[in-house]
Amino acid sequence: MSFIVIKSSFLSTIQDYGRLAHGKHGMSQSGVMDEHAYSWANHLLSNRFNDAVIEITFGGTQLEVLIDTFIAVTGADLEFKVNGKPALMWHGLQVSKGDLLSWDNPKSGVRAYLAVKGGFDTEVLFDSRSVNLRENIGTKLTPGDQLSCQFFEEETYRFIPPKYIPNYNQAIILRLLPSYQFNEFSANQRDLFFNQDYTITNANDRTGCRLSGAPIAMKKERMVSEGISYGGVEISTDGLPIILLKDAPSIGGYPKIGTVFSLDLAKLAQRQPNTQIRFELMNIHQAQKERRKFNEFFKISY
C-alpha cells in the first residue's frame, strides 16, 4: 500500500480518462471532470495519459503517504499542504513515508487532482478505474481506505510553463457546437440563448450543471430518447439549460440546443455556483483542431 486515507469529508474519488466504450450498455462516460488539470498532473510525472488520479472536490481531505514516491497536484487551489505547510502545485513533488497530504478549503476552483508516479492501482471496472456513484461503480474515498500505485522505473519530471496554469476566477465563455436539435430552435430563441448571461446554480455536480437565466421556448418539450454526448446542453421543460457532464446517463429525452466543447467543460468544472457564463458558437473544424492539438501534446490516443 502506498497511501492511506485519514480524512475525506466531501467527495474524493478515483478517476481516470473515463469509461468511453460502454454507452451501449447504458453506462456513463465517467472520468475526470477537468481534463486539463488531470492531463497536466499525469504529464508532470511522465505518467500515461489515462492513469488514475484522485479527484478532490472542495477539499476536506487528508492522506498519509506510506512509501517514498513522487506526486503532482493540479487543478483547484484547495490549500494543499504537506505536513501542514503550503506545498507547490502544478509541479512534481517528492514525498516520503509518513508525510501527511492535506486539502482544506477552496480558495480558487473546485476540483484538485492528485497524481502519483505510475498511477493509482485500483480495481479496473468495465475498462476504467473511474468511480461512478450514481451507477454504484466503486465508492468514494473514506477514512481507512488504502491505495496502492503502479510500479515505475524512471524518475522523470516535466515542468509546466506558467502561462498554462489557469486562473479559475476568470470569466468563461462556453463554446457550443450547433449539434442535435440546434436548428429546431427558432432564431429568436437562439438569440436569447447566446445573448444572455447564465448563472451556475447549486444543482451542479458530476452528472450535470443546471443554469439559471431567462427561459427559452421549444416547440416540443420531450422527444424520443437518444444517445447523449459529453457536454450536450439539454433545455428542460422549464426552458433552462442543463449541461450534461461525465456522470450523465447515456441516453436522454430532452431537446438539446448544442454540445459544449470539451476543453471549455474543463474550465466549467472549476467554477463555483453563482458564476456567470455565456455561450458562443463554435464550428466542428475548430473544435477538432483544438482538441487534436491537446491530445497530441498529452499523447492522448483516443
Binding site: H22, S225, E226, I228, S229, S250, Q288, R292, E296
Partner: peptide, 22 residues
C-alpha cells in the same frame, strides 16, 4: 469507432478524432 449507442430511432456513434475528421 469508440462506442455506439442505439436508442429507439437513432444510433449515437463516437469516434477517434485523432485519426479521422468529422
Amino acid at each position: 469507432i469508440i462506442d455506439l449507442i442505439p436508442s429507439y430511432t437513432s444510433l449515437h456513434v463516437s469516434y477517434d478524432l485523432n485519426t479521422i475528421s468529422y
